[in-house]
Amino acid sequence: MTANKLSKRDTFKVYINWIMYSLSCQNMERMEAPAFSRIMGLVADKLYDKEEDKQELLLRHAQFFNTEPLIGSIIPGIVLGMEEKKSCGEDIPDELISSIKTALMGPFAGIGDSLMAGTLVPILLSIALGLSKDTGSLAGPIFYVITYLGIMLPLTWFLFRKGYTAGINSAEMILGGGKKDLITRAANIVGLMVIGAISAQYVSANVGLGYTSGDMAISIAPVLDGIFPSLVPLLLTLLSWFLLDKKKMNIGWIFLIFIIISVACSVTGILVP
């Protein structure tokens, strides 16, 4: 086992920065990627000596990433562990790290939204409301702040640390057993299917087009849905992949194309909010 390059203090810095900045530059194109790139940038100097390696590390994590940031803090933990091992010279392919991130972000978004935002928060708030609703007493707010932060602060740090250890161990497990190709392939398949699944969730385009003929109003949206639900979002995703991968088009141009499409379609009413 190679020596660890990161101290517990370093991992804490990464954790705190993830918790703070995960959504601070939230954007429609890559969502939480700026924050992921930031937390890797914070430890880049510790992991690598050469500038090119640091640049590659940051670029690797400037890709689309989106999850529920609190429960999902386990993912930057895992990735940090794997990146540390990789920087120690272990043969961990870039795409394995990307696939694992992609494969995990969907499930943890689901778990975080349903268990934390959908269950824990409403339960604690209901109790707090019971304490304060009629009296205006401070007991309710104090109860909520203490229980919520009392649960979430240790829990998110625990998940992050567990992820970090798992990331380091998984690197050894994968490489030690000679199963690297197998696991890369498996992570790839899961990753691709999850990208498909979350594309269907996040990309949206509502067709508003229709026409009236006498008394009969026909709208196009149900017809399209009859052929294939969410057809337009699918085509948009494939278009962007095609232009990026097959036409080697610069991302700036694709962005411009999407702006033009949305202005044109919005003004003419082809697409509606």
């Binding site: 594309s199 990309v203 992949w241 949305s262 909010p273």
Partner: peptide, 26 residues
Amino acid sequence: SLGNIFIVLGGMLPAVGFGLLLKFIM
């Protein structure tokens, strides 16, 4: 009308992020 354009564009833009990911993984 301006708000509508932003909502339509906002709905479409994740496609670019997923296109990038596909290029990267596939």
